[in-house]
């Protein structure tokens, strides 16, 4: 589904990614973790070309990403993304947020788009909020709307960029529950998160990043049970220790 081969990316003099290679199969769930500044967000933002890689190859569902806008567009139509800060459109209602892209990108008829939107609002368990504006919702509700918004485009692959990091602790579970459910239905997912409980239950593989490199990638039992690298051991002791 995703294939990254020796990808490099710098921001000015800072090398965010160094020769990173990672493959994600269809239906696979990969959790990406690591200390802040390790390149996790940059890595998943390459997948739908929110960041442009400098060298190496990024291939998503058989489409190689380069400067060709048509291919970028094709990939973005297949890839849904959920952000740390939700990034809902504040001037639109929840329903309008959900129907915007289906109406204007996929040219779905309005009635059908609204049906789809209500279906996914049901799925994320907030059907009653359709007419509200994002600012009227709690953080957890906003993030669930953001997940529903991405699902309305019927993506083949979902990217989550620290979806629970901006949430109050009591709201984290409601968002993770939705994500777990999505995983059970077979969605291909790449999730940047520090929620190790989520990684244990859902992930097929955990990729540990540090300093712009994927240090190791292993099934959660192996990764949590017997991390290979010193850096992974240190990281795990820090986040699991408290």
């Amino acid at each position: 589904m995703i294939e990254m081969i020796k990808v490099n990316k710098s921001f000015g003099a800072f090398r965010a990614l160094k020769d990173v290679s990672l493959a994600v199969g269809r239906g696979e769930k990969v959790v990406v973790c690591g200390p802040s500044g390790s390149g996790k967000s940059t890595l998943i933002r390459l997948v739908n070309r929110l960041e442009r890689h400098e060298s190496g190859r990024v291939i998503v569902d058989g489409i190689e990403l380069d400067d060709d806008p048509r291919r970028i567009d094709l990939v973005r139509r297949e890839v849904g993304m959920v952000f740390q800060s939700f990034n809902l459109f504040p001037h639109l209602t929840v329903l309008e947020n959900l129907t915007l892209a289906p109406l204007w990108v996929k040219k779905v008829p309005r009635k059908e788009a609204e049906e789809t939107a209500r279906h996914f609002l049901e799925r994320v368990r907030i059907p009653e909020q359709a007419a509200k504006y994002p600012a009227q919702l709690s953080g957890g509700q906003q993030q669930r709307v953001a997940i529903a918004r991405a699902l309305c485009m019927r993506p083949k692959l979902m990217l989550f960029d620290e979806p629970t990091s901006a949430l109050d602790p009591e709201m984290i579970k409601e968002v993770l529950d939705v994500m777990v459910e999505l995983a059970r239905e077979g969605m291909t997912m790449v999730v940047v998160t520090h929620e190790m409980g989520f990684a244990r239950t859902v992930a097929d593989r955990v990729a540990f990043m540090d300093g712009g490199e994927v240090i190791e990638a292993a099934p959660p039992a192996e990764f949590f049970g017997a991390p290979q690298s010193e850096r992974a051991k240190l990281f795990l002791s820090q986040i699991l220790g408290h």
Partner: peptide, 25 residues
């Protein structure tokens, strides 16, 4: 920037992104 990211991620092309998401705000 997050508004642009979200619009990009939804594959909204330039003019729609501009007129439906960015300019109204």
């Amino acid at each position: 920037q997050g508004q642009y990211d979200a619009a990009h991620a939804l594959a909204l092309p330039f003019w729609r992104r501009t007129f439906l998401v960015i300019l109204p705000q």
